[in-house]
Design a protein around this nucleic acid. Structure first.
Lengths: 346, 346
DNA sequence: TTGTATGCGTTATCAA
DNA sequence: TTGATAACGCATACAA
């Protein structure tokens, strides 16, 4: 299969006996071309099946119409959905999305960013890895003048826009929902507070208790990684230490699932004996026999808005002004069986 | 934030008072440069923080080190995992992965491919949409001499490589597993046979019955779309028509889940009254109260192998030979509670 | 071993 | 309104 010859503006110019420059102008709808030649060029371009060489254009203009997205893992539903949102918003504008995984590893993250920068992407979207503390590689992006947008997991860097959800409010709503259902000894199984999202969820939990005049019991607060196994271990830990609790607000759906498993295997009734609320609205939560109450993060919307922020940013690229936009989305509580005492029949 | 000036080989050449050509040769480790100048160039390149402009290189060489992946939806676990496999294999070789969604729509698919071709990607990986029948846009890729690799959902086009799983064997194993568990009236809820994967799963089901001397009952065979709702409706349909069945082999985990829901709500016991096997090993299947037996497809591996096939393909690019490689992976049956009569306690 | 010149496909500047 | 030419950054054929 011989490679098809690419047709260039020179092919058109030769065929019409005009200069390539004129062809270029006609193709770009310049008003410094006669209508007649413009139509002629457009017609022959179509006849010859001319395709603009984006590479040459990129070399000349410096714009590639590619953007990079760096996430910890692509096959986590949440991140895949954000990417989908970005893609849906940017694709109609002619952009392509290049994806990279950091595997929750800073060095990888830095490497990916460096590679993206080298590919001359027009912007970078990133959700930082759990191990990211050193931010040199992120500042480098800003310093090169490449638009950078954080989503979900951000860092506080001046001049960098971000789209996050209000984890604090989500956690507050989740906790208050449990309180309203009559639970009073609410435990919190959270994640590493080095990530702002977990810190905020913790804060929201604390605030809801305070507002409702419920004493805070440190022994009911655990910090674990986001796995089913960690959820199982956390409940074992609570029970072993004879900590009293009648509900769990978990910062992760996976941990919540593990907790449910362990509680049921020990004959606790959910939601009668223990109410449970998770976080993220992972797809599996609604397919459980007893669907899990959880806080949804509208990831597709998050991606769409991140993309919109990016588009604004490149529009305002006067370079003299430095724009920074921080969008915070409101999460949504999905009230399902694991926390609804009244609605239950068991 | 002023854009940092990019340093080129000319900057290096000026600084060292040599020609850019020599710099280029030194950078490319040519043996037609003195060791001394080579070292000197390398050193100043590092000092000046020189980064090769991949755009210029691409324009010159025709290679961009970008590959495109077209899938129906990025946020489906299966596809996200395949992409992850591709990315893991190709990233160390300096490639970037550009993702596109067809949204199960041929026109979209054609548009995405055209856009990718225009971006001068070095190869395309694709899992075709359900509505793909016209294959002009796919033949166009081959005709342009761009390496094309099908994964999972392929079409029979000569000269195009593919990586799929053996859906036939997977279905055969699943059905035979049910037979060995003592089920005899096994229903099959399949998908649109226009997609080869569903056709093969149907064939495997039929073959397993035949091999085991079980008569085929057409009334036990349904064809639906891959949703929970379709699974619910399918079971209702079977029951309304008084079709006898003691097991279901579904070509989709979602359909299997819907079927389970409907059966349990009508007080059928699983697996005692009805055994169930799904397909895909979606993450939720193992988190169900009664974990679902299902056929796993090793999507990450599929992506890795697809990437390897691509790498082979570009290596052998003598253009005189036309290579076509068809890799078929063996699926794996995950035997869980919904089909194990003995192991159950209910 | 090194330098000069050219082309990859565009767009932009300057003349005509 | 159009054309000639330079430039984007790199690699390479050819000359020295």
């Amino acid at each position: 299969m011989r490679q098809k010859e690419k047709v260039t503006i020179y092919d058109i110019s030769k065929k019409l006996n005009i200069s390539a420059a004129t062809v270029s102008r006609a193709l770009n709808n310049s008003n410094r071309v006669s209508l007649k030649t413009k139509e002629l060029v457009l017609k022959t371009a179509k006849d010859l099946n001319y395709q603009q060489n984006t590479l040459a254009l990129a070399l000349k203009s410096g714009r590639t119409f590619n953007v990079g997205v760096v996430v910890p893992y692509i096959n986590h539903t949440f991140f895949a959905s954000v990417i989908r949102g970005i893609e849906e918003e940017l694709e109609p504008k002619g952009y392509h999305v290049i994806i990279c995984q950091s595997h929750e590893n800073v060095e990888n993250e830095a490497k990916q960013i460096k590679a993206l920068l080298n590919t001359h992407i027009d912007g970078i979207f990133i959700s930082v890895s759990k191990t990211t503390e050193d931010i040199k590689h992120i500042e480098a992006v800003r310093d090169e003048g490449v638009p950078l947008i954080f989503f979900d997991r951000k860092m506080d860097i001046s001049g960098v826009s971000s789209v996050t959800i209000n984890d604090y409010e989500g956690a507050f709503a989740a906790t208050e929902h449990l309180i309203k259902q009559g639970y009073t000894k609410i435990a919190h199984i959270g994640g590493d507070p080095k990530l702002q999202i977990y810190k905020h969820r913790y804060d929201g939990y604390i605030a809801a208790l305070k507002v409702n005049n419920i004493a805070i019991d440190e022994s009911r607060i655990l910090e674990v990684s986001s796995t089913v196994e960690a959820g199982i271990a956390a409940v074992q830990d609570l029970l072993n230490k004879k900590t009293e609790f009648d509900a769990i607000f978990s910062a992760s759906d996976y941990v919540a699932l593990g907790a449910m498993r362990e509680l049921r295997s020990r004959d606790f009734k959910i939601p009668q004996d223990v109410g449970i609320v998770g976080f993220s609205n992972e797809p599996f939560t609604k397919y459980l026999e007893r669907p899990l109450t959880t806080v949804g993060q509208t990831p597709v919307l998050m991606g769409q808005i991140a993309a919109q922020v990016f588009l604004e940013q490149i529009k305002e690229k006067n370079k003299s002004v430095q724009v920074e936009k921080r969008v915070v989305l409101m999460p949504e509580l999905y009230e399902r069986e694991t926390s609804l005492k009244k609605g239950s029949t068991h």
